[in-house]
Amino acid sequence: MPFERDVHRQVAALHVQCLDQGFLSSLGPAILTQLYRAIDESDDSVLLVEKDGDKVIGFVCGSSGMRPVYRQMLRHPVGLAGAGVPLLFKPRKVLGILEILRHGRKKSAGSALPDHELLSIALLPEARGSGRAAALYARLADHFRSRQIGAFRIVVGDALAPAHRFYQKMGATVAAKVEIHAGKGSTIYVQDLGNGAS
């Protein structure tokens, strides 16, 4: 059952606060609220949150790919239009969105990379060092495992040294290097879930 709308707004705000070096944060909380709503509602993706009372202090989400998420976003045209229209007047943002969409289509059927992906994970700064990030990561791994998925990938910007350390600590291994946005490299990690499926 999907979360209430307030959870999507809190997750979007947490993304902007904690993942501020990524392109998606630059799109702002309105469009990110629509994105996380779609991730939560799509049958092909999952949104898991960590709360302290009613406050979202962390989240992780994953998917079998972004196409089902984008299709889900289109099921709420009014909300999407309200959030997205201001971006039409910002050509760099539109270009960045097109780069993400183009990257999402590049994966060929013959690719050795897993279809499933950790899309994002974030935790409030005051909750870090408590093991909650590792617990969120483990919850996503368990979710994928329960669906007989053998591995998932994680795309990490090369400039995000703490994220690289975290994924390596969690047992993910480097699988490839890519460039999603011009001039900005990323590393693709793969987390093996040890159940033999893909």
Rank of each mutant, 00 (worst) to 15 (best):
A38N: 02
I39G: 00
I39V: 15
I39D: 00
I39M: 09
D40H: 02
D40E: 07
D40I: 10
E41G: 04
E41D: 10
E41I: 01
E41C: 12
S42M: 06
S42H: 06
S42G: 01
S42T: 04
D43N: 10
D43F: 08
D43H: 10
D44N: 12
D44Q: 14
D44A: 14
D44E: 15
S45L: 06
S45P: 06
S45A: 15
S45F: 05
S45D: 02
V46T: 06
L47W: 05
L48V: 13
V49T: 15
V49Y: 01
V49Q: 04
E50A: 15
E50Q: 13
E50Y: 14
K51G: 08
K51M: 14
K51D: 08
K51L: 09
D52I: 04
D52H: 14
D52P: 04
G53T: 11
G53C: 09
G53L: 09
G53P: 13
D54Q: 15
D54W: 03
K55L: 13
K55M: 11
K55V: 13
K55F: 07
K55N: 12
K55G: 02
V56L: 08
V56M: 08
I57P: 05
I57T: 15
G58W: 06
G58S: 09
G58Q: 03
F59I: 10
F59P: 13
V60W: 06
V60D: 00
G62I: 02
G62H: 03
S63P: 01
S63D: 01
S64D: 09
S64P: 00
S64N: 10
G65I: 01
G65N: 05
G65A: 07
G65E: 01
M66K: 04
M66Y: 05
M66S: 08
R67M: 11
R67S: 11
P68H: 09
P68F: 02
P68S: 08
V69Q: 06
V69A: 06
V69N: 05
V69G: 01
V69C: 07
Y70G: 10
Y70Q: 10
Y70N: 05
Y70C: 08
R71H: 10
R71T: 12
R71W: 10
R71G: 08
R71L: 14
R71M: 12
Q72S: 13
Q72L: 03
Q72D: 05
M73G: 03
M73Q: 09
M73W: 06
M73V: 01
L74T: 11
L74W: 09
L74R: 08
R75P: 00
R75K: 13
R75D: 04
R75F: 07
R75Q: 10
H76C: 02
P77L: 04
P77H: 05
